[in-house]
């Protein structure tokens, strides 16, 4: 791979500033048409490996945390839905009981009269 091709490849990768500096250091002073030797290619691939490792660690952490948060939200959502059903049932029960008690009250009073 020629130096100009390697520079393009590195540019496309959007390395972190510190990694980019190191990559430029490896290619510094070389003519664009110079074909990279094995040693330089090894150094560049090691930098790419570092970039892959960091991105992978952060991506996994984001993914796992997001999944954990999603599970939490789902659980809260399900519990809220269950609570909504309970409240509807509660309302139904207390109103029906109230009506019965009221009927009973009126009935008893009528009997007393």
């Amino acid at each position: 791979m020629r130096v100009d091709e390697a520079k393009k490849l590195i540019g496309d990768l959007s390395f972190a500033t510190e990694v980019n500096e190191k990559a430029n250091e490896i290619l510094f002073g070389l003519a664009d048409d110079y074909v990279l030797d094995d040693e330089r290619i090894d150094k560049l691939t090691a930098l790419i490996d570092l970039e892959i490792e960091m991105a992978q660690i952060e991506a996994d952490a984001c993914e796992q945390t997001s999944q954990a948060m999603g599970d939490f939200l789902k659980e809260v959502d399900t519990a809220s839905e269950k609570a909504a059903v309970e409240i509807d049932q509660l309302t139904e029960n207390v109103i029906n009981q109230g009506k019965q008690k009221l009927q009973q009250t009126i009935g008893e009073e009528t009997v007393v009269k």
Partner: peptide, 14 residues
């Protein structure tokens, strides 16, 4: 959430 919405709705109705 939709669950919480249902919950507050049920509470309001109740």
């Amino acid at each position: 959430s939709s669950g919480w919405e249902k919950f507050t709705g049920a509470l309001g109705r109740g």
